[in-house]
C-alpha cells in the first residue's frame, strides 16, 4: 500500500520533468544545427616554422544578431574588393549602430582604403560609419553617396560601426551595400 503511494508520488513528480526532457529533445538538435552552420572567415595560414599571417588587409564580419541590421554578408571578389551587405529592417525614428566589420592591416606599411556604401533607394536616413571614434558620412538623407578614404596604420586592428539615423519612422526593409577597396 505504502509502496504504491510512493510510486504514485514519484510518477506525479517525474511527469513534468519528462515533459521538459521531451521538449529539450526537440530544442537541443535545433540549436545545435543552427550552431553547426558554417561561417566564412579568413583562415590562418600555418607553415612548418610556426604561425604566419599573409601580409594583406584582412576584413572579417563581426556578425551577431541585431534588431535593425539583419542578413549580414561579406564577400570578397577576385579583384580584392570586399562587399558587405545587410538588410536594414523597418524601424522607428532613432539612431541605431552596430559593429559590423573588423579590419586588420597585417602589412608593415600604411594602407589606404576607399569605402563607400548606399541603399538602393534614398531612405531619408543618415548612414555613416564610425572608426576609432571618428564618424564618416556614407549616405545623406536625399541619397547622395560620399566616398571615404581611410588610412590604416601598420599592424593595427580597427572595428567599423555602421550607424543609421532616421528622422521619421521607416516602414519598409532596405538593402544596404558597402564596398571596401584597397587603393594604396
Amino acid at each position: 500500500m505504502k509502496n504504491q503511494k510512493l510510486k504514485k508520488f514519484f510518477t506525479l513528480v517525474l511527469e513534468p520533468f519528462a515533459f521538459g526532457i521531451l521538449a529539450l529533445i526537440f530544442i537541443i538538435p535545433t540549436i545545435t544545427v543552427v550552431n553547426l552552420e558554417p561561417i566564412t572567415k579568413v583562415l590562418k595560414n600555418l607553415d612548418v616554422l610556426g604561425v604566419s599571417e599573409q601580409a594583406r588587409v584582412e576584413i572579417n564580419a563581426i556578425e551577431g544578431t541585431h534588431q535593425i541590421f539583419g542578413r549580414e554578408k561579406l564577400l570578397e571578389d577576385e579583384s580584392g574588393t570586399f562587399t558587405y551587405t545587410t538588410t536594414l529592417t523597418r524601424r522607428e525614428a532613432d539612431r541605431y549602430s552596430k559593429p559590423i566589420l573588423e579590419i586588420k592591416n597585417n602589412r608593415n606599411i600604411d594602407v589606404k582604403l576607399e569605402i563607400y556604401g548606399n541603399t538602393h533607394l534614398p531612405t531619408y536616413s543618415n548612414i555613416s560609419m564610425i572608426i576609432n571614434d571618428q564618424s564618416y558620412k556614407l549616405q545623406s538623407p536625399n541619397g547622395d553617396v560620399t566616398t571615404q578614404n581611410i588610412l590604416l596604420a601598420p599592424n593595427q586592428k580597427y572595428v567599423v560601426y555602421l550607424v543609421v539615423e532616421s528622422f521619421s519612422n521607416v516602414q519598409f526593409n532596405e538593402d544596404f551595400e558597402l564596398k571596401i577597396k584597397e587603393i594604396e
Binding site: 545545435t32 543552427v34 550552431n35 558554417p38 561561417i39 566564412t40 572567415k41 583562415l43 551577431g64
Partner: peptide, 30 residues
C-alpha cells in the same frame, strides 16, 4: 575548414570556411 571558439552562438563553437561560395555550398549540401 577550421573549428573556432568565438562567442557568437549558444554553444560558442563555429565551423569556418575561407570562401563564401564554399560556405554556401557546404551549408546547402549538409
Amino acid at each position: 575548414l577550421e573549428i573556432g571558439n568565438d562567442i557568437n552562438g549558444l554553444f560558442s563553437t563555429q565551423i569556418y570556411f575561407e570562401d563564401a561560395q564554399v560556405t554556401y555550398f557546404v551549408n546547402s549540401v549538409s
